[in-house]
Design a protein around this nucleic acid. Structure first.
Lengths: 215, 215
DNA sequence: GCCTTATGTTGACGTCGTTAACATTCGAGA
DNA sequence: TCTCGAATGTTAACGACGTCAACATAAGGC
């Protein structure tokens, strides 16, 4: 199942209290934005369209978000939440060793290929650096920390070279991030179903890059 | 010197034949677009603004480009041209061995950090996959080929593992691409001047990932 | 029950990319 | 050299977009 699918697409106004007040418009706006982004990409996201799908005026959004940018930040934040969960699950579920590391890498690329537009909102520079808000920064940071912690643990087990963990983590992140971007960017054409194998290959190469050198 | 700086920014209408016809508007449009993108980013690029800077009406552009997208494609194509040249120079200039490979990796990341907005136009998904036109596809392909050829040569020298070169090249490209994106995306904060060292570190890790395993 | 506040709507503005209709200049062929 | 089609540039306008100001309606504590 795709990672960031909002819960109830077909019946978004279930909890509407009456014809005027919506009840939980903020979350509904984020969900609808995610839906549109999934279907047609970020550049197709329109505040007017979001409003129309929710049977709400085009400016109702401004009671919950400062501007369009803020809506995108919320989308990215939600993406980072499920993203981090999938990484942590892969790491824990595969034994927190070499296999866990490989599983985490595959999970990363799988998330990106299954949620390409969403991934692009998170990493494509649509949300500016500085003004992104504390919540997104925290959530993004937490995802990165999953990787750093895993590397430190692998270092302690003697499996990964003893470079500064942050430097190591930035490299690993960059490597899978780049593979993910290429995979979803159309830059690399791949037969259907081959993306999982490519992800596995990437993870193995990254492992070779960071594993402790033979003594 | 920055890679993609157009030649004559201060005197763009040198060759203007008269007040009406410009003479070489197409190239001037691309140059001005590059200038704006460098200064303020892609999202700040406006056809009206491009025209104004060139003392030309806002729709003159449509005699040379189908739409804004086509202008961006031209920008990306020009970027790919100098990009490939820098990669090839680095590879040739450093001995076409392990050192050449590392130099190529550093040159890649240097190009991105020195031309961040331009790099984003090339790889950030602003130019769609299918409709990009044959010229951009060829230029992008040529850049990739520099890397593939280098890897094949290194394989023949016994320095790089004998995996399928394309698979290998996609991994390498993705790894440096990801490092470049993180470096220019503000996702990773770095003290000034540390980016060169980080690029060198990335290149070394990638080398460890692809070098021939010890027998 | 009233009144403050939160929430949603309507109307409007300025900017954007794009198109259509028109103007000017270039250059090849007589 | 003159002419006329083709290339190139301009003006006016349109619809879509994000956003703001003014107004309408509902919710909930006193």
């Amino acid at each position: 199942m795709a990672a960031t699918t909002p819960a109830a697409a077909p019946a978004p106004e279930r909890k509407r209290r009456n014809a005027y007040h919506h009840g939980n418009l903020r979350q509904a706006l984020v969900d609808q934005a995610v839906r549109t982004i999934r279907a047609d990409g970020v550049e197709a996201l329109t505040l007017r369209d979001v409003g129309a799908h929710l049977r709400v005026s085009r400016t109702a959004l401004y009671r919950h978000f400062a501007d369009k940018q803020a809506l995108l930040v919320a989308v990215a934040t939600e993406g980072f939440r499920t993203f981090r969960k999938e990484l942590a699950d892969a790491w824990d579920g595969a034994g927190r060793g070499r296999e866990g590391f490989l599983a985490q890498g595959r999970a990363y690329i799988r998330f990106a290929t299954e949620n390409p537009s969403h991934y692009r909102v998170m990493f494509g520079g649509y949300v500016a650096k500085g003004d992104c808000g504390a919540e997104l920064a925290a959530e993004s940071e937490a995802g990165f920390r999953v990787l750093v912690d895993a590397l430190v643990e692998l270092q302690h087990a003697g499996l990964v070279r003893r470079d500064p963990p942050l430097e190591l983590a930035v490299f690993v992140w960059g490597a899978v991030h780049g593979a993910a971007m290429l995979a979803i960017g159309g830059q690399v054409v791949r037969p259907d179903g081959a993306s999982a194998a490519a992800a596995a290959y990437t993870a193995e190469r990254v492992w070779d890059a960071v594993k402790a050198p033979a003594r």
